[in-house]
């Protein structure tokens, strides 16, 4: 495979923004391109990730294109998925060898609607949608399965939240303090569930020597893979994430020591499931960015995990990092990316 690296990353998140998608995106895309050192015309491919249902209107990516200066016309595509999958598409595109740089962005304003109700429209329309069940209910069923199997405790879940909130600068409440809160959807408490967040992110990928020219320490993508599972939660072992394990193996997570992992776990117990599926030992620093307990902008949260992992390679604070992104109810679909600095 051709060497491809992340050379810059920018993101913006907030609980609620009065800006539109373009107003949120334009400065973040600008920052990512500026800090990459590339001229815009060097970008040979642009790809984004978003979901029309967040704003309830078709073609949100069409309007967002105004933020990407698509003139003269650009080679461009869009996935109705988290931006981490857009990054995967860009990585594939760069493998072909005719272009050297790609821009990836993602956006979404979850605060405009009732996010649980919006995401419930992703469920099986015949068996599940008529019940009025939503993704949070599935997360709660999954958490109970973890507790029943003895794979974690409510305190373990609270500890994930406490660490994430601390690292995101949202306060120093301990796990025991968090556990005093009442259940929201037992066994989930509010701190186990992701905050509603508006957000955008942008990443610039560059191949080979051009990446080395632009940055003294590019974050090389040494492996990237993604897998999906069956949609019906009733046919799956909810306490395991075999798709994460498959993707991790294909991406080569276990080939060398991992310094840190950015795990996209919307619900606290899911971090425990994913961490195990990735095969990470206790020495690995998890989610130094704070992860989902800090901010969870739907459609860019996965791309931000990749960007945050890359940031720590780019700044020299880590040598080998793993990034993970998820989609669908109960961790149905998972992407794993291994990033390394220059030896």
């Amino acid at each position: 495979m051709r060497d491809v690296a992340i050379v810059s990353f920018a993101a913006s998140t907030t609980p609620h923004s009065n800006l539109d998608d373009v107003e949120m995106l334009a400065p973040v895309i600008h920052e990512a391109i500026e800090s990459s050192g590339l001229a815009r015309r060097e970008i040979g491919f642009t790809v984004s990730g978003s979901c029309d249902y967040l704003c309830g209107r078709p073609f949100s990516f069409l309007m967002a294109l105004d933020a990407a200066s698509a003139w003269p016309p650009i080679s461009e595509s869009h996935v109705e998925m988290d931006g981490a999958w857009a990054l995967y598409e860009a990585w594939v595109r760069l493998q072909i060898g005719d272009i050297d740089a790609a821009l990836v962005y993602a956006f979404g304003k979850a605060s405009q609607g009732d996010l649980n109700a919006v995401m419930a429209t992703q469920l099986d329309p015949y068996y599940l949608a008529p019940l009025g069940v939503d993704a949070e209910c599935f997360a709660a069923l999954q958490a109970r399965a973890m507790l029943d199997a003895g794979r974690c405790t409510e305190r373990d879940m609270a500890a994930v939240a406490a660490r994430g909130r601390r690292d995101a600068g949202l306060g120093a409440a301990s796990a025991d303090e968090l556990l005093r809160a009442p259940y929201k959807l037992a066994p989930l408490r509010a701190h186990d569930c992701p905050p509603v967040t508006d957000g955008v992110a942008a990443v610039v990928l560059v191949a080979g020597d051009r990446a080395r020219q632009l940055h003294k320490r590019p974050a090389w993508i040494r492996g990237i893979d993604h897998r999906i599972e069956a949609p019906s939660p009733g046919v799956r072992d909810l306490t395991r994430s075999p798709s994460t394990a498959l993707a991790a193996r294909a991406a080569g997570v276990g080939r060398a020591k991992v310094d840190l992992a950015e795990i996209h776990a919307p619900y606290t117990h899911q971090e425990i499931i994913v961490r195990e599926a990735l095969g990470l030992d206790a020495s690995v620093v998890i989610n130094p960015s704070g992860g989902a307990p800090g901010a969870h902008p739907v459609m860019s949260a996965g791309l931000i995990r990749v960007g945050e992992a890359a940031r720590r390679i780019l700044d020299g604070s880590a040598q080998r990092a793993v990034a993970h992104a998820t989609a669908g109810p109960c961790l149905q679909q998972n992407l794993v990316c291994v990033l390394e600095g220059e030896q």
């Binding site: 029309d52 990516f61 996935v79 109705e80 993604h226 897998r227 999906i228 075999p242 679909q333």
Partner: peptide, 8 residues
């Protein structure tokens, strides 16, 4: 068990 992507 495979990669799956959705384009729009």
């Amino acid at each position: 068990g495979k990669p799956m992507m959705r384009v729009h």
